[in-house]
Design a protein around this nucleic acid. Structure first.
Lengths: 106, 106
DNA sequence: TGCTTATATAAGCCATGACTTATGAAACGG
DNA sequence: CCGTTTCATAAGTCATGGCTTATATAAGCA
């Protein structure tokens, strides 16, 4: 059920940009806020959303919190898409041989 | 670049429900509108969004339009997530051996 | 203990987008 | 042709959510 949260989290462009920045290495909130063009609170709000989706985790060092990408949310999203993909393939295989015929208006 | 459109298209619950219904077999707009609890125009608007994201295609039979899932948009989204996944794994492998140390406040 | 730094939360504003009803456009049937 | 069916588009309403500024929390340092 987390894949829904992950989908909506990654759909937002600014939030996706944050996540893409975290996918390689961890960043503190301040670093992220400095790079993005939005305020620090806005960044924190996005991070909360990403946290809930299990797309990021953080660890605390002094007053700073270092965020990094988390596999969980990404993996749930991935497996959701896999199942969609499989169904679509099966549907194609089943439908192609015999395309449905026009029907009379009831 | 289409993966962005696909993400925002699938993020919306009603639209995702429509797509999930189409993943197995095709449906006419009327069928979809009858099953969903929203008006037919609302369904058409969602279908337009899914079309732009290459998540569905349609064929016309008389006055009806039968929609089915399309592989393109789904595949673009899938490969986007794959690349994210790969980066995250690499970052984990690189970071785990030597977790960054606390730094003094500048 | 107070001052500073770093981040989170609160409250309010405003644009986006998901819905509605009304209408237009196309194809079929009589 | 003309009415009916099916779908798309238009226009307008309203809620959601992403942003802002202001403030709370909390840790380090003198």
């Amino acid at each position: 059920m987390t894949y829904e949260t992950a989908l909506t989290a990654l759909a937002e462009p600014t939030r996706r940009a944050l996540f893409e920045r975290l996918r390689r290495r961890e960043h503190s909130v301040g670093e992220l806020a400095a790079l993005a063009r939005i305020s620090q609170p806005a960044v924190s709000q996005h991070l909360r959303s990403l946290r809930r989706a299990r797309l990021v985790t953080h660890r605390q060092v002094g007053t700073r919190r270092y965020y990094r990408a988390d596999r969980q949310g990404l993996d749930e999203l991935r497996s959701y898409l896999e199942s969609m993909w499989d169904d679509v393939l099966i549907a194609f295989a089943a439908a192609d041989p015999a395309p449905p015929k026009p029907r009379k208006t009831k």
